[in-house]
Simulated scan of single mutants.
Amino acid sequence: MDKKKVLIVDDQNGIRVLLMEVFSSEGYLTYQASNGKLALEIVRNETPDIVLLDMKIPGMDGLEILKQIKEMKPDLNVIMMTAYGELDMIKEASDLGALMHFTKPFDIDEMRVAVNMTLERSSGSSVSISS
């Protein structure tokens, strides 16, 4: 069985390292990107099963990255990570197709459970439509 792939996109190294450790220990293949350009390359080349995406990334913000991810892979699961108070952006992210968001500092166990549940749901429906 193929390992599920988790892509972590955050400009803060500490958060990327923490999330990579958590999801590697859950048995997922983890990828990390500190900026939008790299994140989109990984989405294109590795086709992750889920993306944990920070809203505030220098250069290309989370919403722009989300738009481009959804253009490439409309069905890709994306969970947003936001700083407190970015409610307008959260609404826009939902409109663009983000599954849910976590406000920093988030509970790492809640994040883990959300990712596990999302990936279990998406592996349950193994219908793939290739364009």
Results as ranks from 00 to 15, higher is better:
98 A>D: 02
46 E>V: 08
93 A>D: 05
84 Y>W: 08
72 M>E: 11
79 I>N: 03
41 E>T: 11
22 V>I: 14
25 S>L: 14
51 V>C: 06
33 A>K: 05
127 V>W: 00
46 E>R: 12
52 L>V: 07
68 Q>W: 00
19 L>A: 13
12 Q>K: 10
14 G>E: 12
98 A>F: 00
128 S>Y: 10
39 A>V: 02
76 L>A: 04
97 G>F: 03
74 P>S: 15
14 G>R: 09
78 V>A: 06
93 A>K: 01
122 S>M: 09
53 L>R: 07
9 V>W: 02
71 E>T: 14
22 V>G: 07
12 Q>P: 00
26 E>S: 10
120 E>G: 00
104 K>T: 06
29 L>G: 01
116 N>P: 00
98 A>L: 02
43 V>F: 03
91 K>H: 09
27 G>F: 03
91 K>Y: 13
20 M>D: 11
85 G>K: 05
65 I>V: 12
82 T>G: 02
54 D>H: 05
22 V>M: 10
16 R>F: 03
82 T>N: 03
74 P>M: 12
130 S>I: 15
49 D>Q: 05
50 I>Q: 07
59 G>Y: 05
27 G>V: 07
24 S>N: 14
41 E>D: 14
96 L>A: 06
36 G>S: 04
36 G>L: 05
25 S>C: 12
73 K>V: 14
126 S>I: 11
112 R>N: 04
86 E>D: 15
70 K>L: 06
1 M>F: 00
2 D>R: 15
25 S>H: 14
15 I>M: 10
15 I>S: 05
37 K>W: 00
71 E>V: 14
86 E>R: 09
84 Y>I: 13
24 S>H: 10
15 I>L: 10
71 E>L: 15
114 A>S: 12
106 F>Q: 11
10 D>C: 08
24 S>R: 13
46 E>Y: 04
85 G>N: 06
27 G>C: 06
10 D>A: 10
102 F>W: 04
4 K>S: 09
126 S>H: 15
72 M>Y: 04
87 L>F: 14
123 S>M: 12
120 E>K: 14
81 M>K: 04
48 P>D: 06
102 F>L: 15
38 L>H: 10
28 Y>I: 04
91 K>C: 11
66 L>E: 07
74 P>Y: 01
15 I>P: 01
76 L>S: 02
20 M>Y: 01
119 L>W: 02
21 E>G: 09
95 D>S: 08
130 S>V: 15
67 K>C: 04
122 S>P: 00
94 S>R: 13
109 D>T: 01
110 E>G: 12
43 V>T: 02
17 V>W: 06
106 F>K: 13
26 E>W: 05
66 L>D: 07
5 K>L: 02
123 S>R: 12
61 D>R: 00
94 S>Q: 12
130 S>L: 14
73 K>M: 13
44 R>V: 03
26 E>D: 11
89 M>S: 15
106 F>Y: 14
119 L>I: 03
